[in-house]
């Protein structure tokens, strides 16, 4: 089954990801403009973009363990998933900055410094910037071993993203905690060594 899936996936070009990526954002914007996302479209858009960004970050981090544990090879999509995740974090940030906060600089700069959930969300976003900038093939070649090291920044970034959501919710809500659990789980999978393959006996 996995082999068949891998064979099929080999035929799908990675650039398809970039083609499909803007569709959810466009859909949510359209929903907001037509009132389909309810009477507070800004919060709805902000939330949808943020949640999807987190899902993409988790998906990107799932690629290595999926190969290691299930033999599913999605490696060629990893860069595209990461880049798209960054753009969704950026859109989430811009929605907050422009639509939600109406560019009230005094209040929003104060919020970044003083409000812990905004602070950690912002730090998570900033951590992703160098990764997005060095996501091209030239950077990978130039940076060599340092590239791998640099891109480990995605671990603290996704943790901060998950915490950002847990923290902003009123009370302990199930959904952000579920995501936080998924993040911790997927990071834990990287620490656990792969089980030795047993010799197959006939």
């Amino acid at each position: 089954m996995i082999d068949a899936l891998n064979t099929t996936l080999r035929k799908v070009p990675a650039w398809i990801t970039y083609l499909v990526a803007p569709l959810p954002a466009a859909f949510w914007l359209w929903q907001g403009a037509t009132g389909a996302s309810g009477p507070e479209p800004i919060k709805a858009l902000e939330h949808s973009l943020g949640e999807f960004a987190l899902q993409l970050l988790i998906a990107g981090l799932a690629i290595t363990p999926l190969r290691k544990w299930a033999g599913l090879n999605l490696l060629k999509f990893r860069r595209a998933v990461g880049v798209v995740a960054f753009f969704y974090v950026l859109l989430h940030f811009l929605t907050w900055l422009v639509l939600d906060m109406s560019l009230l600089w005094g209040q929003l700069l104060g919020d970044i410094v003083k409000r812990p959930y905004i602070t950690i969300g912002f730090i998570g976003f900033v951590l992703l910037i160098p990764l997005a900038v060095t996501s091209n093939t030239l950077s990978v070649r130039r940076l060599g071993a340092r590239w791998r090291k640099l891109h480990k920044l995605v671990y603290p970034a996704v943790l901060l993203g998950g915490l950002h959501w847990v923290w902003l919710a009123k009370g302990w809500q199930a959904e952000p905690l579920f995501y936080m659990g998924a993040i911790l789980g997927i990071l834990a999978l990287r620490v656990i060594p792969k089980p030795r393959k047993r010799a197959v006996t006939a």
Binding site: G32, A33, P39, E40, P41, D100, L104, Q107, D111, R115
Partner: peptide, 12 residues
Amino acid sequence: SQASERVIGGGL
């Protein structure tokens, strides 16, 4: 902050 508020129903 409680200094400002978002008024529901004002659109995007």
